[in-house]
Amino acid sequence: MYEEIPRVELTPAAADLVRRLHAAHGPLMFHQSGGCCDGSAPMCYPDGEFRTGNSDVLLAELYVDGVEEPVSFWMSRSQYQAWSHTRLIVDVVEGRGSGFSLEAPEGVRFLTRSRVVGT
């Protein structure tokens, strides 16, 4: 039986942080732009706070135990073209990331790891 590999997944640490952020801020979304500085890291926002458009691709609706609604994961189309052959794994590492992402005050930041998808 064929089992589909998720396009985007969260590590247990990332899922735990999403639960904490959801409890504090309500529904969430991720966007990864590929821009300068922290732009290549996934940024977490209250759902709908970051405006997506034709230059963005919805890669996944992430279901996290303990979070009622799915968390959307968006990526800029140009970044997606570079990462289209990979599975994205959202993790958490120590250190301060962007001041715009909800986890910044926690002293940690989200980080995308990738694995090449087999053909």
Rank of each mutant, 00 (worst) to 15 (best):
52 T>S: 01
97 G>V: 10
37 C>E: 04
87 R>E: 00
43 M>K: 15
53 G>W: 01
109 R>V: 02
6 P>H: 07
22 H>G: 06
81 Q>N: 12
76 S>F: 00
78 S>F: 10
108 V>W: 09
99 G>V: 05
21 L>I: 05
96 R>K: 10
4 E>K: 11
105 P>G: 03
108 V>L: 02
59 L>R: 00
8 V>L: 09
64 V>H: 07
42 P>T: 13
90 V>K: 13
19 R>T: 07
39 G>R: 01
38 D>K: 02
103 E>I: 15
51 R>H: 08
44 C>G: 01
118 G>P: 06
63 Y>F: 06
60 A>Y: 05
10 L>W: 14
113 R>A: 10
67 V>R: 02
59 L>W: 01
108 V>Y: 10
3 E>Y: 14
59 L>S: 04
26 G>T: 11
89 I>Q: 06
46 P>V: 09
11 T>V: 12
115 R>T: 10
12 P>Q: 15
72 S>T: 14
16 D>F: 09
3 E>A: 15
112 T>L: 11
103 E>Y: 06
40 S>T: 03
24 A>T: 13
71 V>A: 07
88 L>R: 04
39 G>F: 01
104 A>N: 06
37 C>G: 03
29 M>E: 09
15 A>C: 07
3 E>N: 14
114 S>H: 13
14 A>Q: 12
44 C>F: 06
59 L>I: 02
90 V>N: 08
59 L>T: 08
58 L>A: 06
46 P>H: 06
7 R>Q: 12
89 I>D: 00
9 E>R: 14
5 I>H: 11
117 V>E: 04
98 S>D: 00
49 E>W: 07
98 S>W: 01
85 H>P: 02
16 D>V: 09
99 G>H: 15
15 A>L: 10
42 P>R: 05
112 T>C: 11
32 Q>E: 03
13 A>M: 12
27 P>K: 04
113 R>M: 10
99 G>T: 12
33 S>R: 01
118 G>E: 15
27 P>D: 15
37 C>A: 07
41 A>S: 05
41 A>F: 02
48 G>D: 06
35 G>T: 04
103 E>V: 13
59 L>P: 00
119 T>K: 13
5 I>W: 13
18 V>L: 14
26 G>D: 05
34 G>V: 05
46 P>S: 14
98 S>V: 02
61 E>V: 00
50 F>L: 04
46 P>C: 11
40 S>Q: 08
90 V>S: 03
19 R>H: 09
36 C>Y: 04
36 C>F: 03
74 W>D: 02
18 V>F: 14
42 P>Y: 11
39 G>K: 01
58 L>M: 04
31 H>V: 15
75 M>L: 03
33 S>T: 06
63 Y>K: 14
78 S>Y: 08
71 V>P: 01
